[in-house]
Simulated assay, not measured.
Amino acid sequence: MFGAMFGGFAGGSFSAQYRVYPVSFLDKLEAENGDKIFLPPSALDRLASLHIEYPMLFKVENRRNSRSTHCGVLEFIADEGMMYMPYWMMQNLLLEEGDIVTISSATLRKGTYVKLQPHTKDFLDISNPKAVLETTLRGYSCLTKGDCICLHYNNKRYYIDIIEAKPEDAISVIETDCNVDFAPPLDYVEPSRDEYAASAAAAAAAATPPAEDARSTSGEEAAPAPEEPKFLAFVGSGRRLDGKPAAGGDPVPVKFGAFGPRLPVPAPAEPGTPGKGTAAPGARPSQKAGKVVFGSGNRLLDKQLAAQGKGPVPAPEAKPPAPKPEDAKLADEANKFHAFSGRPRSLRD
Score class of each variant (00 low, 15 high):
residue 152 H to F: 09
residue 230 K to H: 04
residue 111 G to E: 05
residue 100 I to C: 00
residue 155 N to P: 11
residue 199 S to G: 10
residue 347 L to I: 13
residue 331 A to S: 06
residue 152 H to T: 15
residue 22 P to H: 13
residue 9 F to A: 03
residue 266 P to Y: 00
residue 97 E to A: 14
residue 205 A to M: 02
residue 197 A to V: 15
residue 75 E to K: 14
residue 177 D to C: 08
residue 287 Q to D: 07
residue 345 R to A: 11
residue 345 R to G: 12
residue 66 S to L: 05
residue 347 L to E: 08
residue 255 K to E: 12
residue 311 G to D: 01
residue 55 P to A: 05
residue 91 Q to L: 08
residue 121 K to Y: 03
residue 194 D to E: 15
residue 329 K to M: 09
residue 231 F to L: 04
residue 171 I to L: 03
residue 162 I to M: 08
residue 346 S to H: 15
residue 301 L to F: 00
residue 87 Y to N: 15
residue 102 T to A: 04
residue 293 V to C: 02
residue 330 L to R: 11
residue 237 S to A: 10
residue 48 A to S: 10
residue 22 P to G: 11
residue 298 N to T: 07
residue 316 P to D: 07
residue 245 P to E: 15
residue 140 Y to S: 15
residue 285 P to M: 00
residue 49 S to D: 07
residue 345 R to K: 15
residue 57 L to R: 09
residue 34 G to S: 08
residue 166 K to T: 13
residue 325 P to F: 01
residue 224 P to F: 00
residue 63 R to T: 11
residue 191 P to Q: 03
residue 239 R to N: 13
residue 123 F to H: 07
residue 180 V to L: 10
residue 338 H to E: 05
residue 265 V to W: 00
residue 138 R to C: 02
residue 277 G to L: 02
residue 145 K to Q: 13
residue 26 L to D: 10
residue 10 A to R: 05
residue 146 G to C: 05
residue 314 P to A: 00
residue 247 A to D: 12
residue 217 T to R: 05
residue 107 T to C: 11
residue 344 P to K: 11
residue 95 L to I: 09
residue 205 A to E: 07
